[in-house]
Amino acid sequence: MAVRIAHFLFAFFLAVQLGCSDEGGRVPVSGRVLIDGQPLQHGRVQVVPEGSRPAYGELNEAGEYTLMTYDDNDGTMPGTHKAMITAVESIDGWHNKWHAPKKYSTFDGGVTVEIRPDGTASDIELSWDGGKPFVEDNRKN
């Protein structure tokens, strides 16, 4: 029984190491997010390279972000990756303002970003599709 547990643990840790291995391949990355052609000024970008750790960055007033995986500006792996943009601002304990549609706040929202080996990224272009920023009331009725 102890041998089986040891084999299981070894296989588990090996799988984790192989699944999250990105040492030496990350590039510092900066990019920008636009919504209907204008900079998205609130929110966070997160990308998940296949077989690597997620990277994220906060948006500034110009819609720009710098990705980090472990440390400031250490970037992520080059390639085309799924991305999610969570553009919500807490107003008070019950209300949040959404600066982009909620559908972009999951990896199933259809957003991708190309991270080039030189550290540049394709623009992430979002759309309200006729909608507009809104305040959500989170109180239960």
Score class of each variant (00 low, 15 high):
Tyr104Cys: 01
Glu114Lys: 14
Asn96Asp: 11
Ser127Ala: 15
His95Ala: 07
Ile115Glu: 10
Gly119Thr: 13
Ser127Gln: 11
Asp92Trp: 10
Asp92Cys: 09
Trp98Thr: 00
Ile124Pro: 14
Arg116Thr: 01
Gly131Thr: 02
Asp108Glu: 09
Pro117Val: 02
His99Gln: 00
Lys102Gln: 09
Glu125Asn: 14
Trp98His: 14
Gly119Trp: 14
Phe107Ala: 02
Asp123Thr: 14
Asp92Ile: 07
Gly110Cys: 07
Asp108Val: 00
Arg116Trp: 00
Lys102Ala: 12
Gly110Leu: 08
Gly130Asp: 10
Leu126Thr: 07
Asn96Arg: 11
Tyr104Gly: 02
Phe134Ile: 04
Arg116Ser: 02
Lys132Val: 02
Ile115Cys: 05
Glu136Arg: 11
Lys132Asp: 06
Gly93Asp: 15
Val113Lys: 08
Ile115Asn: 09
Pro101Gln: 08
Arg116Phe: 06
Ile124Val: 15
Asp108Pro: 00
Trp128Asp: 01
Asp92Gly: 10
Ser127Trp: 06
Val113Ser: 09
Thr120Arg: 13
His95Pro: 09
Thr112Asn: 04
Gly110Asp: 05
Lys103Val: 08
Trp98Lys: 04
Arg116Glu: 01
Thr120Ser: 15
Phe134Leu: 11
Lys132Glu: 12
Gly109Trp: 03
Glu114Thr: 15
Thr112Arg: 06
Gly130Cys: 12
Asp118Leu: 05
Ser105Trp: 02
Arg116Asp: 00
Tyr104Trp: 02
Lys97Ile: 04
Ser105Ala: 15
Glu125Ser: 13
Ile115Thr: 06
Pro133Arg: 12
His95Thr: 07
Lys102Asp: 03
Gly119Cys: 13
Ser105Lys: 03
Asp118Gln: 06
Thr106Ile: 00
Pro117Trp: 04
Ile115Tyr: 11
Ile124Phe: 13
Thr112Lys: 11
Thr106Met: 02
Asp108Phe: 08
Trp94Pro: 00
Gly130Ala: 12
Leu126Lys: 07
Lys103Gly: 02
